[in-house]
Amino acid sequence: MTPFTTLDGLAVALDRSNVDTDQIIPARFLRKPRSAGYQNFLFHDVREAEPDFPLNGRAPAILVADANFGCGSSREGAVYALVDAGIRCVIAPSFGDIFAGNAGKNGLLTVVLAPDLAAALRAQLPASMRVDLPAQQVRFPDGSVHGFAIDAFRKRCLVEGLDDIGLTLAHAGEIAAFQDADRAARPWAMPA
């Protein structure tokens, strides 16, 4: 996974809420191998249906949306499409939980900003802006700087580009001990 530190790039506003992952990548593209590259599937049908869709003719590094971005299907293909299209950060007032988890696993930073702040930012776009993950700050095009919160662990994985399976397997002893105790406590939990 590509480490994420500081990002300067073009940000584009997507002035809508509840952007679901079916819109981000329609289902029929999910059977494509990852090696094919997912960038052309990003918002495929919306881009065709809406000639003035904000991503048409632009290649931003940052996307700023309204609430509940990435809701719906768990398809990690939505994150692949964003990442393969060069988007490294999505900013919104809230995210679908599964989408946010998938994003973190692929080096895509999700930044939660309060609804008013996110709206103020969208009003300044398209324009260049900065996202500083180590400092947990975003700098708007107008120069104002705003902090954001992020889980310490998610931050560390992004900044260091860590593979979390490796980290988990470092706890193999604890996992084995848990399994032994659990087998005794819940013998019925195994499939018959």
């Binding site: 768990s74 990690e76 994150v79 599964i98 988890g101 998938n102 696993k105 399976i165 988990t168 397997l169």
Partner: peptide, 14 residues
């Protein structure tokens, strides 16, 4: 709960 592909691989492995 639902999980993404990276988490699927995490569960498969661990």
């Amino acid at each position: 709960f639902g999980i993404g592909a990276s988490e699927v691989s995490h569960v498969l492995a661990t």
